[in-house]
Amino acid sequence: MSTPRAPAADPVVSAQSAASARPALPRSSVRGAAQLGLAARPGVEAVAAKGWLRAHKWLLLRRLSQLGVLALFLVGPWFGCWVVKGNLTSSLTLGVLPLSDPFVLAQSLAAGHLPYRQALIGGGIVFAFYLAFGGRLFCSWVCPMNLVTDAAAWLRRRLGLKGGKAPAAASRYWLLGFVLLAAALSGSLAWEWLNPVSMLHRALLFGFGLAWGLVGGVFLYDLLIAPRGWCGHLCPQGAFYSLLGRASLLGVSAARRRDCNDCMDCFAVCPEPQVIRPALKAAGQDHPLILDGDCTRCGRCIDVCGKSVFRITTRFNRSES
């Protein structure tokens, strides 16, 4: 991977074959910096090419969504103006719309309790939404823990921390299985005693206690021990939503992959970098659509690509352009 390559004469060739020649790489890009022995600043090329705002469009929208969801919950306890009551595990919006987290309901069912209709309807709505649009939209657009792990990943990149070993990416599916097993065996929502995701959100709304420690632990784990370790490898809630997002209608497509200059910036910012390769490099599939359920639809790859390779589209649009 460290072999410098000459600029490609024909961009189509460069996109189709990994071994062919490449255009020159910007010094700030991940690969360009690696070749020069510099610290990489993924996204700088995109800012230069598209302007700061367009190079941060999806990130800004996502932060808006995450903080907006939080705000909807918080205006109640802070200002006495109740929009959404409860928390992410189960809530009631404007007194009429129930929403529940199907992951927690699954644990409850495994523990031997059939929830009331209100929770089941709420869980059904959420389930259907993520089934249709991509399960891990929850992770990147709603989950408050994402702010923490994104911050850890950002700091990791900024400090140029290398190394660290993440557990195998399949760990989360095992953990998901064991979480349900533990619920069934203990007859209680065992995981909810520890679940940093629901705990962080609840703590923001109802008071922290020692939950700071757990959240800080996840941050430090991601920062120092395992890159993208929590969301990308361990979190059983993310695993649940990954499974749910297998057949989603929305997806990211590397539609203009023939323009790719292999700068590797998208891989550096993607929380699940393994999902990009099949679509971008046509490895194991022909079309440029990222179909992997692990893709969080965060759109960060769209932002940081200076060549505007990626775009959000539907699962039926498999064309290249």
């Binding site: 209680s188 929502l189 909810e192 609840r202």
Partner: peptide
Amino acid sequence: GDFLSACVRCGLCARDCPYDTLKLARLG
């Protein structure tokens, strides 16, 4: 025992208690 399999810890009960009697246990 049944309560721990049923309660999803949403806090809706606590929110609707007019006397702020109910609170959600924090970690610790």
